[in-house]
Amino acid sequence: MTALISRRAAIGAALAAPVIWGQDAVAQIRRGDELTVGVWGGMQERILREFVATPLEQQHGVKINFVLGGTTDRRARAYAERGRPSFDIVYLNIFESRQAVKDGVTQDVTGNVPNAAYLYPVAKLGGYGVAFNPVTIVYDKRKVAPMTSWRDFWRDDLKGKIIWPTYPGAQGTSALLMAAKIWGGSETNIDPAFTHIAALKPFAAIQASQDQLYAMFDQEVGAASIEFGSFTRVYAETRNPNIIIADPTEGQAVATNVACITTGTTKQALADAWVNLHLSPACQRAYAERIYYSPTVNNVELPPELAAKLVMGPAAVDKLVDFDWDLVIRNQARWSNRFTREIAG
């Protein structure tokens, strides 16, 4: 994918963003300060270095330290260091971030981040949502008729063609909760989900990761699954044009990457500035152009052909399906055991 903004123009736009900052907050950022950021690697890291880290380092004479990896390790470290953090920013997923605020590990949204004023309401829960990455139906258009509803998994023509996502995990959790929703259940009544998912067996396979699913699609092991739409769109446009990312009538399951400022950070002003740049139109646009992450702010303009591939605008965001994540997390161990017995077994 070709970015629509040059590196020089993007950095220039990012450097300009702190102009809207209150002068008192800027004065608290001291030359030589170091900010430690725990985040995923790959393209996300590269975008953050270009649009956030480099502008801050150049403008304020600070140093940004990246700690790369998955959420499990950095979440555990953040909890172990609660109140005396070595991280200043940790990136978490939708349910981890909300719980971390309740547990006093990270901070809720404040008025110290100007660009947070443009966040959609669902992106203000548990910190600063920086990207929507919904989970949805993905399928091979050569193998099955168009899928427009989560109920389509129970169509006769999909028998033996379904690659179901493992549980727990974002994809498997979304699949379980959406199955409960469409068959009359909910987070408080998960039985309809397990009953109906079990009725889909035998599956073509159980998938535990995007890479595994895409290899299965390549090998034509199965024809339909549940996955992050953004990653699957990249896969479809670079490897397998037969794969369709569906927009089901009931909505896609919300998933959000969240920038969380740790409670007790000694670099509060610099952390606020970091988040402000991540929410800037330039950075949000880069996420959309390079990895199809949808903006969490309402002040980003994108070309129509790109916007059509994303969750854009209040109506589309309102259609995302959210859940009671506290309840989901409390039941995770029990549901995981049940998934192993009734679905994967």
Rank of each mutant, 00 (worst) to 15 (best):
I182M: 07
E50V: 01
V19Y: 02
V317M: 08
I197Q: 02
V67S: 14
S230A: 15
T256R: 10
A100K: 08
A246D: 02
A100W: 06
G345W: 01
T72F: 05
G229C: 01
L68M: 13
N331Y: 02
V311N: 01
W325C: 00
I190K: 12
F153K: 09
T263D: 05
G127Q: 07
P55I: 10
T36L: 09
Q171W: 02
A316M: 10
A117W: 00
A259N: 09
R239L: 03
W164R: 01
F339Q: 02
G184T: 07
V311C: 04
V101A: 11
T256S: 06
A13N: 13
Q28N: 15
M216G: 03
A288F: 02
S174Q: 04
S209M: 04
V67D: 11
E289H: 06
T166H: 04
T148D: 12
A193R: 07
I226Q: 05
S336I: 01
Q268I: 07
T262R: 05
F231S: 14
S6H: 04
L4K: 09
E187W: 00
K161P: 02
G111A: 11
A208Y: 10
Q59Y: 03
V254I: 13
I261K: 04
G104R: 14
F323S: 07
A175L: 01
S149Y: 01
A208V: 12
S6A: 09
D152K: 09
E187V: 15
P303A: 15
R30Y: 01
I291C: 10
L48K: 12
N276V: 03
R49Q: 14
A224L: 12
P304C: 03
